[in-house]
Structures are given as C-alpha cells and as structure tokens.
Design a protein around this nucleic acid. Structure first.
Length: 920
RNA sequence: GCCGGGGUGGUGAAAUCGGUAUACACGUCAGACUUAAAAUCUGAUGACCGCAAGGUCGUGAGGGUUCGAGUCCCUCCCUCGGCACCA
C-alpha cells in the first residue's frame, strides 16, 4: 500500500447512524421466533421511563447485558434481546404530578425520548417486539392474570393493618417499604431506623384498610426451596432467603386455667429448652386477652385492660412519635408486661407457670404467644429480671460454667434438669422433644415465615384498573363468582376461600381490558380510594352475576404486577403472525421454545421486589397449567452500581451523567467500552471523565491498526479476487480457508509468540465475557493491541488473521466500529438494498476459537526464588524437569550467591516457580 | 446482633489450585515531533535507603499455618447491602 494514501479517519457519529439503519433494515437482531434452532433469550430488566431520560446507570446495565447477548449470538445462538418500557406506576405518575402534565400525554413524550436513547446505545435489541405496560393491549393481560389469580383463590380481599405512604397517598406492599437510617451517630453507633416508601422516601404510616392481596405466602416454601437450584447471583438468593425468612421449630400446646378448653399455642425454635419455661407471654392483641379481661376480677381486670390499651397505643405512638428521639435505640425498648392472674401447664413436666401479657411479643409473628425461657433467651431474661421471675437452666454449656443470674445462655449445649432428655445435645434434644410432643399430641413441628401476602391495590390513577366488580345485591344474597361457579371451588383450597368474597365478580374476560379512562383530575385523593372513584361512568356497571346495578373496583394494581410477567409477553407479541388467538398473553409453542429466560441481568435493588414477584407469578401460572416451567429466569446476574468520581450519582449532588452528552462527544462505542472498563460488572464502577478519553485513544489505535498500510489484510481477505467476481457473503469461507493451509501468500505466517498471544487473548476474552468480567476482557485486548503495535514497529506488518480476530473479539464491545472496519476494510461494499440477501454482519460471524496447545507451546518465564523471595527470572522451555530447572536456576548469578553453602533443597512448581530453601 | 459483598499505588482497578503483588487504564514527570500549543509517539512511575549494583519494607490491624499468604485459619477494625423485640 502506498504510504501517501491516507486511511479514512474514524467518525463515530457517521458510522453509528449508518450501521443502526443497516442493521435495522437487514433485521439482523430479529431471530425467527417460530423456527429458530438455538433460541437464546437474553434479557435485561426493562426501564421505567422517567422524564429525565435514560440514566447512564441504565445504559451501563444494558450494555453489559448486550455484550453477553452479542457473544451468545456469535457463538451460534439465535439471540432474542427484546426491550420495552415499564411506564405504568407511581414513579411516572408522581413525575407527571410534579410538572403538571397528564400521564397519558407525558408518557408519549418520555416514550419517544427513551426509545431514541435506547436506539443510540448500540444494543442488539429486537425492536419489533417492543412493549409498554401502559398500552391497553398489554394491560388487558395484566388484568386477565389478575382474574386468573382470583379464580384460583390466589387473590383475595382482606382487611389488615397496612403500610400507607402519606405522600403517594396509597398503600404499599411490605416489600415496598424500606428501612432507612435517619440519624447516624458516629460515636454511639445507634442508628435510628425509620420505614420509608420505596418510591418517594417518605416515612410510612399504618392504616387499617381493606385491600386486594395475592397469596404469595402459599408459595413461601417453594420460593425458598427452588433458590437452591437456580443459577442466580448469590447476593440476591441470600436477600430472598432472608426475606422469606423461614424459621423452623415447633408449636406447643399449653393448657391453662383461663378456660377449660383454652389451649395456648406457642411457637419456639428451641423446644429443647422446654424444661426451662418459667412463664408464658401473650401479645396484647392475642385473641385470648379478651377472655382474660372478661374473666379477671376487680382491680386486676382494670389493670389488665389499662395495660392492653396502653401498649396498643404505645406501639402506634412509638412508630410515629419516636422518630426525633435520636438517642434512643429502636432495639432497646424497655419490655413491659402484666401478670394476668392465670396459669398455664407445661405439657412436658406438668409445671404451672404464670401467664403474662407483654408488648415485646408480636401478634404478627409465630402464634402471638411465647414460652418464657429466661435462662436461654435474652428477651425473656430481661423480662424475668424486671418482673422477678424464676430463671431455670435447662441447657448447660458443653464445657465450663455459666452464671445464669447474669446472662441468658443462648448457645448450644447439653440438656439438664430436663428429665428423660438429660444429657442430649441441643441438636438431639430439639428432635427428641419434637418427637415426644408429636407422639403425645402436645404439638407439632412447625415453621413460621417472615414473608407476607402481597398487597396489590393502589389508590392511584396511573395503573391498570383492578378488573373486579362488587354487587351489593349478590353480597346480601351471599352470592359471588365462586358460588356461581361451583366446579371451580373444588379446585381451590378451602383456606383460600376463607374470606368475604360475597358480592365479588371478576370482569368477564371478553370485556377486558377495563380501560383506564382519561380522568382530568388524576391526583391521588388520600381518602383511601383512587381518583377513578369520582368517575361515575367508570364506576357504575352491571353485575356479571345478577345483572343489577353494581360498582367497579376503583383501585389500580401495583406496578410490580405489570413487570412480573412482561418477559412472557415479548416472544409472543402481536407482530408475530403465528399468534392468532389472543386469549392468552402468550403463544404456547413459542413460549415453550423461548422460555424460561436464559440470561437475565438487573440491579440488586429488585432482589425482593420484582425478582420475587416474578418467581411467585410464574409458579402460580405453572400451577394453573398456563406455562410449563416454574422459574422464570434460569440464570440471573446482578450488575453493580455505577458511581461518579467516588460518589453515588444523584440529582441533588448534580453529578448525574447524561449518556447523551457522552455519545455526542465520543460516540456509543467509546462510551460502551469505557463503562465496561470502569470495574468488574458485578461490582459496579466509577465513572471519570478522564478515563473515557483513554478508551477513545484505544479505539482510535484499533482503527489505525486495522486501516493502516501495515496490516496485510486486504489481500488476505479475498480482495485480490476483485470486487466484481468475489461472491458476496463468502467472508465466512474466507475466514475458514484462512485457517487452513491456503493462506494467501502476502499474509505473513504467525510465529509461535504471535500465536500464543492471540490464542491467549481469545481464551481470556471468551472466558471473561462468560463470567461478565468485561473490564479484564478489555484489558486483555489492550495488552494484545500493545503487542501488535510493537510487532508493527518491528516487522511493519501484522497478519490479516490477527486483524480479523481482534475485530471479532472487540465486536460485542464496540459494535459500530468493528462492523465498519469489518465491512469496509476487510470486506468491501455493503449491499444497498434488502433484496440482496447477501449481507452478513460481523455480529453474525463465528466467534474465534482458541487452541490450548498454542498457548502452552514454546518458552516460559521461570520464577526463581530463594527462601520464598523472588530473585531472578529465566526463560526456559515449557515442560522442563525439576532437575533441569534446578540446574539452570542455581547457576544464575543472582541466585548462586545465596546457595554457596550448598545446603539447600528445592521446590519446583512446573513451568512457574523454583524455590530454593536454604538450611539455617 | 445475625447473614452476605468489599478494604490492594496518586486514581479506577488486576491477580485460576496458595506460586513474579500492583496487569490494563487514568494521572504525573521526562523526552521526540511542533514557531508554539493540542494531538500523537517513546520512556519512567508502590514506598524508603543508595551515585550505582543492590537492598529493606509493602495488599485495613494483630497473630497463626506454609518452602511460599492479597489468597487459608484465628482475633479485631472500617465500609456497603440484606434481615432483626422473629420467640
């Protein structure tokens, strides 16, 4: 090549626009959903569009997911990487309120902006299947799923003390309430924790309200158990395990003298301590408390009543009033209680113990009653000290002494003072006591859970209306959908119908969707009902059961229901000609082919929200026979958090990176690569402006190397055939022949060093992409680049195989630039029209293979140590023996001086290290 | 309190099984090119001692195991996240 001939310079803007268009025209990212041979569903959590536009954090996660998907595509899979918007919900609505626009109009704008940005980042999205959760053709099915859950007994209406956000003016599910430390005191280390709304950060309140719930608790066991067999980031599995919160133990029945048949059920995880019980405690809300008050006499009756009133009020006021008392730890509330005058009988030894009512026992956990074992439980100990109750050891340490008057002994030990069980270890003791109570019908083994049912109602506007109708007349007659559909009842578990369903009917499926009407005043009311309640046209409806005047449910469903099933919808989107029937949101055949999702990537903040809800819903659909798998995401990986200059990005700090500016300035390829280079994908990274310039330098060098006069690639790739006669689209052929002996003569053959470097890089990049270690994959590519440039400066040429491999390995990271180089430099012109079936993108090419033998061949650096300290390095042939290595190494100048005494031995790690150990 | 990440140069970060600590990049310094600057290229860059050859120290702290420890064990500290009057 003539040195005077200048290669075209790299113009990211130009080529990125060009290739976006060609890729879309050629449909290279649209797999054949009906007949793909190797379907691979690669998904990233879809974004909720905010008006500020796509956050660089979204882009970070999306790029990470896309690189993985592009790699899978080049490995020969039919990769499906859909995209959509989670645009319904409080977040979008709150923003609409803030700027005074109607969410129906605002969503159109944010949608356009988001899709524009998502187009620019160069992901291999399958745009034809995009979806938006606020589209009636989508939420029609969100509602249908609600109806299905209702009919299966998994949706019910219940009254409960629920979380209420005074800012969003709606109830929230337990998962959507976060603990936040309000005041941090450096020295005392006491954090004041408050519960806040996941969306807006406002401290939540409690209200007693009737709401729609999903029975996620029915699935607690399976949600927990399946975690062992799914390939998910450990972090998320741990968070889910914690949240599900299984606690295993036993339920024990204590007879009492309150009433002849009043058995008090207690839950304990330590049945082995049963002989240490010295009292019983009931929660103030416990059902037996009413009986106790009724039966108590005189002054005691009044005292108990006062105490119960006081402690019920106290919990309320504590939650609301204690927030400014910085010094007070939440944990160390003084325990208060009162003796009831009644006694219970220990079922194992027949001892009578006093019954107390105390505020430290929670009705919402276990059975609302505990056995007091002060010798082995810190809380019971504290309570016993205060009320001067007996402390009776039932477990002793395996070794040493324990002063039971000072502290509770909560560790495992050996049973003592426990009759027939004396001498057993804690572990055996638990089992033996459980066996005993089982045999004698005194109780049973039992597990209790932290997980609560999912509150699905939201008293808001911007969501899918809950498709339910309430009929006063049917309610009065005791009629409901269930009484009218008796066959269904037999399929539903009894306890699932154990609620006041009289009067409730789902909207008939043919009437779905219940469209969200345009309501001018969409502001939340705060009165416990949605703004929809003000729209009488919407509310009034005929009862599907009796035909008389009835009312619609006016609450909308939780946003997390929209996102709990979207992955099921993508492959079966309406664009697909095979989906004729739209009775179900998904086509059975297509779903069988593409689901579950092969690889799912997203943020850890959804560990117990979206990721738990999706699992629950998939299991429920599986049980209904609507899908044939019970776990939605075979493999899931969390992406880390991207920060900026060491600090979390936030609007208040003004350090939010807008990807648009960077794409404008550097192009998407540079930004993509830089984001991935910031740190390990699973751990996040630190975005710095100076760093991105370094990445641009690297890509420019790649461009230069590939277009430069020194890489003998033009001929090697078949350009010598001449453009006219070269069969279009046979690059693959050229590639293959390149690997065989028919290497064109102009291309220099690779020396062992060159080959080792190339194969080493292929191996490293391949493995690192698989484990999502994109930063080190890029580092390996840079190292190889440095090597290739050094080679160019020496021999003025690199082989076309090297250029090509470099482009292929870089393709997932920098899709635009590598495509441009591949097509224009290596291959020639791009077909201009769709008719030409010949177009083949670099992203459809085969991923390079590495040859382990070529990595291992040749010479290696042997590290020579004396007494564990590195003293010298020496180049040796791979595979030399210990004796040879010892011989070579011991003669080295920097080594021999330490070995003059002749008294030493050597440890040899083949091909790596020889360590001489001298005698002292 | 319990459970999980993490703590490595001036900075972002690397380091299969226990085997060269700091790859790769940023920054800085020096040099080349230039009237000059930018860009680009070349070189140096953990700390300390030394003219040098070379040496000593060094992965949050302190112990231990080992020929050899960022990596394993023990006792702590800090930090981020999850759970928590959970019986």
């Amino acid at each position: 090549m003539n040195k005077a001939e200048k290669p075209e310079s790299w113009d990211p803007k130009k080529i990125e626009a060009k290739w976006s268009e060609i890729w879309s025209r050629e449909g290279i990212y649209e797999p054949d959903l009906n007949s793909a041979k190797k379907p691979y569903y690669n998904l990233m959590m879809f974004p909720y569009p905010s008006a500020e536009g796509l956050h660089v954090g979204n882009m970070y996660a999306f790029c990470g997911s896309d690189i993985y998907g592009r790699h899978q595509r080049m490995r020969g899979n039919d990769v499906f990487e859909p995209i959509g918007l989670d645009g319904f919900g409080i977040h979008s609505e709150n923003f609409a309120l803030k700027i005074g626009q109607h969410p129906m109009e605002l969503s159109k704008k944010t949608e356009a902006n988001f899709y524009r940005q998502l187009h620019m980042i160069g992901n291999s999205f399958a745009w034809d299947e995009k979806l938006e959760t606020y589209d009636p053709s989508y939420y029609r099915f969100t509602q249908l799923i609600f109806v299905q859950l209702f009919k299966s007994g998994l949706a019910y209406r219940g009254k409960a003390t629920v979380n209420w956000c005074p800012h969003c003016l709606t109830v929230l599910a337990d998962e959507q309430v976060l603990k936040k430390s309000k005041i941090k005191m450096q020295k005392s280390k006491i954090d004041e924790e408050v519960e806040v709304c996941e969306r807006c950060g406002t401290e939540v309140e409690r209200r007693d309200l009737s709401q729609w719930f999903f029975r996620i608790t029915n699935y607690a066991g399976r949600l927990l158990k399946n975690l062992d067999s799914i390939d998910w980031s450990e972090k998320v599995k741990v968070a889910q395990r914690n949240w599900i919160g299984k606690s295993e133990g036993a339920k024990l029945m204590f007879a009492s003298d309150i009433e002849s048949d009043a058995l008090i059920e207690v839950f304990t995880t330590r049945p082995d301590t049963i002989f240490g019980v010295t009292f019983l405690v009931l929660a103030p809300e416990h059902p037996l408390v009413t009986t106790i008050i009724n039966k108590a006499k005189g002054l005691l009756q009044q005292q108990i009543r006062n105490f119960v009133d006081y402690s019920l009020k106290k919990t309320e006021s504590e939650r609301i009033g204690a927030k400014f008392e910085a010094k007070k730890s939440v944990k160390k509330q003084e325990k208060e209680g009162i003796f009831t005058g009644f006694y219970a009988t220990n079922p194992l030894n027949g001892e009578e113990v006093p019954i107390y009512i105390a505020d430290y026992v929670l009705m919402s956990y276990g059975t609302g009653a505990v056995m007091g074992v002060p010798a082995h439980d810190e809380r019971d100990f504290e309570f016993a000290k205060k009320y001067k109750l007996e402390i009776k050891p039932a477990i002793v340490p395996k070794e040493g002494e324990w002063d039971f008057s000072q502290n509770a002994f909560t560790e495992e030990g050996v049973l003592a003072n426990s009759g027939q069980f004396d001498g057993l270890t804690t572990e055996d003791g638990i089992q033996s006591v459980i066996n005993y109570i089982n045999e004698n019908h005194l109780g049973s083994s039992f597990a209790t859970w932290h997980l609560r049912d999912w509150i699905i109602s939201r008293q808001r506007y911007w969501g899918p209306p809950i498709p339910m109708i309430f009929c006063e007349k049917c309610a009065a007659d005791g009629k409901s959908w269930f009484t009218e559909n008796k066959t269904q009842i037999s399929k539903v578990k009894n306890q699932n119908l154990d609620w006041g369903h009289a009067g409730w009917y789902p909207v008939p499926e043919e009437d779905l969707p219940v469209e969200l009407p345009y309501v001018k005043n969409f502001k939340p009311t705060g009165s416990g009902v949605s703004p929809l309640a003000a729209d009488s046209n919407f509310v009034n409806v005929k009862c599907p059961g009796c035909g008389s005047q009835a009312k619609r449910e006016t609450d909308v469903s939780d946003t997390f229901l929209d996102s709990a099933w979207y992955f099921l919808r993508y492959p079966s989107q309406i664009q697909n000609p095979k989906v004729k029937s739209q009775k179900l949101p998904w086509d059975a055949e297509i779903t069988k082919k593409w689901l579950p999702v092969d690889m799912y990537i997203g943020g850890a903040e959804h560990a117990v929200l979206h990721l738990l809800y999706s699992r629950f819903l998939t299991m429920a659909l599986y049980d209904m026979g609507l899908v044939n798998f019970e776990e939605p995401f075979t493999k899931f990986r969390v992406n880390g958090l991207l920060i900026k200059d060491g600090a979390k990005m936030s609007k208040s700090k003004g350090n939010v990176v807008n990807p648009d500016d960077y794409i404008q300035k550097f192009g998407a390829d540079t930004l993509r690569c830089y984001l991935m280079f910031c740190g390990r994908f699973s751990q996040g990274g630190d975005f710095r402006d100076t760093g991105i310039e370094g990445m641009q330098r690297f890509l420019r060098r790649v461009w230069k190397l590939a277009t430069g006069p020194v890489s003998g690639n033009i001929e090697a790739l078949g350009h010598s055939l001449g453009r006219d006669q070269r069969p279009v689209g046979n690059l693959h052929e050229a590639h293959r022949s390149q690997n065989s002996e028919s290497t064109p003569s102009r291309a220099p053959s690779l020396k062992a060093d060159d080959e080792r470097m190339m194969h080493k890089t292929i191996k490293k990049v391949t493995q690192d992409i698989e484990s999502l270690d994109y930063n080190t994959a890029l580092a390996a590519l840079m190292e190889w680049m440095n090597f290739l440039e050094a080679k160019v400066s020496k021999v003025s040429q690199i082989s076309s195989e090297e250029t090509r491999t470099l482009l292929l390995l870089l393709a997932p990271f920098a899709p635009f630039m590598t495509e441009e180089l591949w097509q224009t430099v290596s291959r020639g012109q791009v077909p201009e029209t769709r008719d030409e079936k010949s177009f083949r993108s670099i992203h459809q090419e085969k991923w390079p293979e590495f040859d382990e033998d070529k990595i291992k061949s040749g010479k290696t650096m042997l590290i020579v140590q004396v007494d564990g300290k590195m003293r010298e390095k020496v180049e040796v042939d791979v595979g030399i023996s210990k004796d040879e290595a010892e011989d070579v190494a011991s003669k080295l100048e920097k080594v021999s001086k330490y070995l003059e005494s002749g008294k030493y031995s050597a440890i040899y790690v083949p091909n790596k290290i020889i360590n001489f150990v001298t005698e002292k």
